[in-house]
């Protein structure tokens, strides 16, 4: 029974990871930029919420308001990121990745200076701070619902709408798309903005689950990276499956074999890379 609860925790954690990883994987797919600032963006969302509402429970409306504020902050930061990265377009992938890493340090250190270096956590909003079915925290169920809703919306946009079709086309063949008169740069910009906004949103969602602290940015960044290594780059399906898998490894793994949990992540990643070097849903390039 307790294992079932842990597995459910894993689903909640996986949903959170999906919200984070889906932006990372799409920014990569469209821009060929590995955004190592994604963890810092997550952290920015969390700290923004902490600075606005502190650690006390608020009403659901305020919590959602703060989440929307974080989305706006994500859009702004995403705009800054795409401006910052533009001069390096011709300089190769490593330099771009390194730049995002430098920006990540700046952003996360700035946040730690504005707040402080101690541990903080957001409280679940009132109404969701109780438990469901006897003892399961309601907020985790809410995270699962929110994660599924975001996943559903992402799938729907990508598979069923014209905007999604344009984005898919921009991943597959940007030259052809540009030749057909579509402004590819605008598509790229909107994907960066959306991906960054999802990251800051994830930071608010995850606030009551993961403590805000120094080093949080790297921790979630690495988990998101493992998710897309496992799932395959630029694949939403892969990000979803990878997130659920890594969510289980991180929760069930820690519960069952606490000493080996760190190595378990490595083992999963190594096994996938050996078995399918491009990830479970990745396309060989």
């Amino acid at each position: 029974m307790s294992l079932l609860v842990t597995a459910f925790d894993g689903i909640a954690f996986g949903c959170l990871l999906f919200v984070l990883a889906v932006g990372l994987t799409m920014i990569f797919g469209l821009l060929d930029v590995l955004n190592l600032a994604h963890g810092a963006l997550y952290m920015a969302g969390g700290y923004l919420a902490f600075l606005v509402i502190g650690e006390v429970p608020t009403s659901l409306a305020v919590f959602i308001g703060v989440a929307l504020l974080a989305v706006v902050a994500g859009l702004v930061l995403g705009g800054g990121l795409s401006v910052a990265i533009r001069p390096l377009t011709r300089r190769g992938h490593l330099d771009q990745a390194l730049l995002t890493m430098g920006l990540a340090i700046l952003l996360s250190e700035f946040l730690l200076q504005v707040a402080d270096r101690g541990f903080h956590s957001l409280a679940a909003p009132r109404g969701l701070d109780g438990s469901i079915a006897g003892s399961y925290p309601a907020y985790r169920v809410a995270v699962i619902v929110a994660g599924l809703a975001i996943a559903g919306a992402t799938f729907w946009i990508f598979e069923r709408t014209r905007a999604g079709a344009l984005v898919r086309a921009a991943v597959d063949d940007p030259e052809m798309l540009a030749a057909s008169g579509v402004n590819v740069r605008r598509i790229r910009l909107s994907v960066v903005l959306a991906g960054c906004a999802l990251a800051t949103l994830a930071g608010v969602l995850g606030g009551p689950l993961l403590n805000l602290r120094a080093g949080l940015d790297t921790e979630v960044l690495v988990l998101a990276l493992i998710v897309i290594v496992v799932g395959g780059l630029a694949s939403i399906r892969g990000a979803a499956l990878g997130a659920l898998l890594i969510g289980q490894v991180q929760t069930l793994g820690v519960a069952l074999v606490p000493e080996l949990a760190a190595y378990l992540l490595f083992a999963v990643m190594a096994a996938v890379l050996l078995w399918r070097p491009a990830g479970l849903f990745g396309r060989a390039t």
Binding site: L225, I228, V229, M269, L273, P277
Partner: peptide, 18 residues
């Protein structure tokens, strides 16, 4: 070393964190 490009970046970052 069996990974290329971005995968190498991610893999080494993950190894560092692990």
């Amino acid at each position: 070393v069996r990974t290329r490009g971005f995968f190498f970046l991610m893999f080494t970052l993950a190894i560092g964190e692990i």
